[in-house]
Nucleic acid binder design. Sequence first.
DNA 1: AATATACTTAAGTACATGCTTAACCAATCG
DNA 2: CGATTGGTTAAGCATGTACTTAAGTATATT
Lengths: 110, 110
Amino acid sequence: MLNQSTPLDLMFQALADPSRRSMVERLSRGPASVSELAKPLAMSLPAVVQHLQVLEASGLVRSAKVGRVRTCQIDWAALQTAEDWMLDRRKTWERRLDRLGDFLAEQEKG
Amino acid sequence: MLNQSTPLDLMFQALADPSRRSMVERLSRGPASVSELAKPLAMSLPAVVQHLQVLEASGLVRSAKVGRVRTCQIDWAALQTAEDWMLDRRKTWERRLDRLGDFLAEQEKG
DNA sequence: AATATACTTAAGTACATGCTTAACCAATCG
DNA sequence: CGATTGGTTAAGCATGTACTTAAGTATATT
C-alpha cells in the first residue's frame, strides 16, 4: 500500500489493535498520562508511545505535554466518523430491504 | 502480533483497507459475485479473493458457491459488533460528562 | 547537587500484509 | 468436444507493523 491512507483507513487501522483499543477504552473514562495508559499493558514504554502515535495520527486521540507529563484524551468527533461509516452502510441496507418489502407487497396485490 | 486475534481485531482490521471497504459498500446494496466485487478495483482477481478472505475471516461477509459463481453477502450482525464497541465507548464518555455536570452543579449550589 | 521520574529517540528484528504472476480446475457456451 | 468464463492455488516479493533494547533529555524531588 503506497501510504495514501485516508482518515477512515487510519481510524479503523488504529482500532484494529487490542492494546490501542484498551488505551481508547481507558481514555473514554477520562484523560490519562502516557504511563497510566501503559500500566495495564505488558510491553515497554516505547511500544506504548508508538501505539499512541498511531492513535494520534488517526485523530482518535490528542495529547499535550505539561512539565514532564504528557496528558492524552479522546477526540470524540473522530470516533464518530468511523461510527458514521457503519451507520451509512446500515442505512443503505435498510433502504434496500424496504424496497424489497415494497416489491413483495406489490407481488402479493397483483 | 502473535496471531491471537479477537473478532473485534479482525473486524476493524478488515475495515481498515479502502478496497475492502469498497467491497462492503457494494455488498450493502445487495449480494454480488466475486468478479462484480472486483470490477471497480484496480487489481488482479487473486488480490480481490484475498481481500474477500479477510472479510470472511472477520465475519463481515459470507459467501457460497453455486455452479462456478461465488455469491457474497454482508453479515450485518458482525458489523453491529464493531458499531457496538464504539457506542459503548461513547456511553462511558457520556456518563462521565453527566457525573462532571452533577459535580459542577453541586459546586454551584454549595 | 544528586537522584528519580516521565518520557523520547534511534536502531534493529521478526512477522504480517497487499500485492503480483503463472498455472490450474471446473462449469457452461457454441 | 473445444473454448470461454469464473474462480482457485501457489509462490514470491516489497513494504508495513509491533515490538525490543540501549541511550538520551528534560523536569521534578530530596
